[in-house]
């Protein structure tokens, strides 16, 4: 299990858990829930912010938020 912020460009992963107090409710509502798939589509320079596809939603979050979402790599 690794934080989403360490996921590399193009890798697929599945959300295992989130640190609920550190991430906004909005992110949960947009599909950042355990069991959903997540892919990194693009990283801005200095790897911040991150452009993700979570479930069916394309969104961008900052690295500081991605640290609190934990994922498992899918081979």
């Amino acid at each position: 299990m690794i934080p989403l912020s360490q996921l590399k460009f193009g890798e697929n992963a599945c959300i295992e858990s989130t640190e609920i107090d550190k991430i906004p409710l909005k992110l949960i509502e947009m599909g950042c829930l355990p069991g959903n798939f997540v892919t990194i589509i693009q990283k801005a320079p200095f790897d911040d912010p991150l452009y993700l596809k979570v479930d069916e939603t394309h969104l961008a979050i900052r690295k500081e938020t991605a640290k609190f979402i934990f994922v498992k790599l899918i081979k």
């Binding site: 992110l27 961008a60 938020t65």
Partner: peptide
Amino acid sequence: SKSYFVIELPN
């Protein structure tokens, strides 16, 4: 003010 940054990148 909300400090979180979450934006959708629409089609």
